[in-house]
Amino acid sequence: MGQNLRTIDWNVTTMGQNLRTIHWTLTTMGHNLRTIGWNVPTTVRNLLDWSNPFWTIQYLYEYYDSLSLEDRIYYAILGMELIYYPVLAAVAVSVNLVTIVILSRGKCGLSKCVTRYLVAMAAADLLVIITDVILRQIPIAYWSQFRFVRSIPVCNIHAVLLYAATDCSVWFTVTFTFDRFVAICCQKLKITYCTEKTAAVVLGTVTVLSCLKDTFWYFMYSSGYMLGNEPWFCAVTPSVMASRIWAVVEALHYILTPGVPFVLILLLNALTVRHILVVSKARRRLRVHSGWESPSDPEMKSRRKSIILLFVISGNFILLWGFFMVYSIWNRMHYLGFYSVYLHEFIQELGFMFQLLSCCTNTCIYAVTQTKFREQLKNAVKFPFVLIVKFIK
Rank of each mutant, 00 (worst) to 15 (best):
T43S: 15
F172L: 03
Y63K: 02
C359Y: 03
P86T: 01
L271N: 05
T21W: 09
A199H: 03
R180N: 09
N11P: 01
E70K: 08
L252P: 03
Y64M: 13
Q137T: 02
R283E: 15
G322F: 15
A380S: 10
V208S: 02
A200S: 12
E299S: 09
R180Y: 04
L103Q: 07
V208T: 10
P41S: 10
V206P: 13
K301L: 12
L252K: 04
T215Y: 08
V174T: 09
T198S: 11
R274M: 12
T215H: 05
L286W: 06
G228R: 06
V381R: 04
L60H: 05
N11K: 14
T14G: 13
V248I: 14
T195I: 07
L309C: 10
L209H: 00
A199W: 04
Y327L: 08
N362L: 14
G315P: 00
M15W: 12
V386E: 10
R150A: 06
S51M: 09
F176P: 01
V389L: 05
V240K: 02
Q3A: 15
L377I: 01
I152M: 14
Y117I: 03
R105F: 07
Q145I: 10
M300C: 09
L82F: 04
Q137K: 06
V260G: 04
L268H: 08
L26C: 08
T205I: 14
Q348L: 15
S104E: 04
V240A: 08
R274T: 14
Y75P: 02
M15I: 09
Y74H: 14
V87I: 15
M15S: 15
G37L: 01
C168I: 15
T166D: 07
I388T: 06
H23L: 10
K305D: 05
F146R: 00
S104D: 03
A159I: 13
T369A: 11
A164Q: 06
P139T: 07
T35F: 11
I36S: 01
I265T: 02
E299C: 07
T35R: 05
F172D: 01
D132Q: 03
L161H: 03
V206M: 12
K390D: 00
I102Q: 01
V206Q: 07
V182P: 07
E250C: 11
D167G: 11
V182F: 03
Y74R: 04
W246N: 09
S66D: 15
Y59R: 10
P295M: 04
H158N: 08
K372M: 10
A251S: 14
S111V: 09
W55F: 15
V368E: 00
M325H: 12
F148N: 04
A367N: 02
A89W: 11
L161M: 14
I152D: 05
L26Q: 06
Q355W: 15
Q17I: 15
I73N: 00
N316L: 13
S223R: 14
S68I: 14
Q187K: 12
M241L: 11
V278A: 09
V386T: 12
M333W: 09
I307S: 01
I307C: 05
I100D: 02
L82N: 12
F54T: 08
E375D: 13
V326F: 03
N269E: 09
P41G: 04
F148W: 15
P231C: 04
C194V: 13
R303E: 11
W50T: 12
M226T: 14
E81F: 11
